[in-house]
Design a protein around this nucleic acid. Structure first.
Lengths: 217, 217
DNA sequence: CGGATAAATGACTCAGCAGTCAAGAATGGC
DNA sequence: GCCATTCTTGACTGCTGAGTCATTTATCCG
């Protein structure tokens, strides 16, 4: 063997590719611009990816897979400490949005369809995953008696998923890191009122007070 | 003058263009496919549009303008008949979704970003318009004392707009016309619980009962 | 009917760009 | 130092498809 390949090559190409894809979208992105930005020749691109689309797929699939790992299932039915649960949910949603924020370039691209119809299914499936997770939480809360029982869980889960979706869209367009915790706490409040029984809503408010008291000490 | 131009030409081209754009998106759509479907020559396209993009713009701008006409402002502050208002809002939202349904091809295309970044701003602006309308309704309801006063109107309007947005996305993908009235009534219920005071929620439920009683007679 | 005028056609031009590959550069082993 | 080997390069090929325009076709009018 001779001339070992530059180990930074692929990483640098992926980084440059991400930037160019975010800037122009998949179709308009030119391979030559990617390689130029990575300080390499055009041919080097094809040493690591069989096509422009494959590079895109690698970037996007990695991201989507990691986003999928943020779904959080409801506990089995039965008595639970709601305050612990609320804190966990809030933290989990903050983590998720922090991740979205850190990857706002590609996420924004995907959310605005920059990845051509060929890859649109990835977001659609992801959104569906989140919607289904929300639906399971709803059914869980209805069974627990803390959520209203007269809801169409399918439709309401769609509405809630859409609410978070639009928040994600906004966050991802921001130039300065927004107050994610503040936003997401307000969203929890919104959800609690939208789907909770009057008793749960009262409990929710006191739990939030507790949470904030502990936090400020 | 001689040889008057075929008056159906432009209309047929637009119809064909719409179909091809919906099928492939703006970038992947081929002018020749459009003209073939319209049963005309490639050159005829350029007698009516200066470019592929212009045809797309005509289709999309018309649609977006008409969608913009569905925004409905809250009344001036003061006493109102909430039941009349509720009925009006429900009917207006049904009209809107009926329109989305009828134009589901292009709407779906736009919502999934098929119109390239160049035209994405049209949807973004439209969504913003709807969000702002919702925000004005929220502030109106808060001033009227029928909505909770502890809400971040900006954030909650974003959430509600997102909820309707995701419903629109679903409707537009459907193959059979869904029960729009049923869905939208459930959405009204969702909104009432999410943002209403306990008193308003109670009133809302009785108004809905009235509405449904009258409807079934 | 036949000349004038304007619409319609589709073969052609040309630019852009993905992907290739022969030539050249770098490295390891001896 | 020199050869074998593998990596790297970028000029080149080929294709796709937008937009053009000389030619053909249809209509009007005297």
């Amino acid at each position: 063997m001779a001339r070992p390949q530059d180990p930074r090559a692929k990483i640098e190409l992926l980084k440059a590719a991400e930037a160019v894809f975010v800037e122009h979208g998949l179709e308009r992105a030119r391979v030559e611009e990617i390689t130029t930005r990575a300080g390499r020749s055009k041919g080097s691109f094809y040493l690591h990816f069989s096509s422009k689309e494959e590079a895109f797929r690698q970037i996007v699939e990695t991201l989507v897979a990691r986003l999928g790992s943020f779904v959080d299932e409801p506990p089995p039915p039965g008595p639970v400490d709601l305050e612990v649960l609320l804190r966990r949910q809030l933290e989990r949603s903050i983590e998720t949005f922090e991740f979205l924020w850190m990857n706002r370039g590609v996420v924004g691209l995907l959310m605005s369809g920059g990845g051509s119809a060929e890859f649109g299914y990835l977001i659609v499936e992801l959104e569906q995953q989140y919607r289904q997770m929300i639906e399971r939480w709803l059914r869980w809360g209805m069974a627990q008696g803390i959520y209203r029982n007269d809801m169409d869980a399918d439709l309401i889960s769609l509405a809630l998923a859409g609410a978070y979706d639009s928040l994600a869209r906004r966050v991802v367009k921001e130039t300065k890191r927004p107050d994610l915790r503040g936003m997401l706490l307000e969203m929890e409040r919104f959800v609690a009122h939208a789907v909770g029984t009057p008793e749960y809503i009262a409990q929710f408010d006191s739990m939030v007070n507790n949470l904030e008291r502990k936090r400020n000490s």
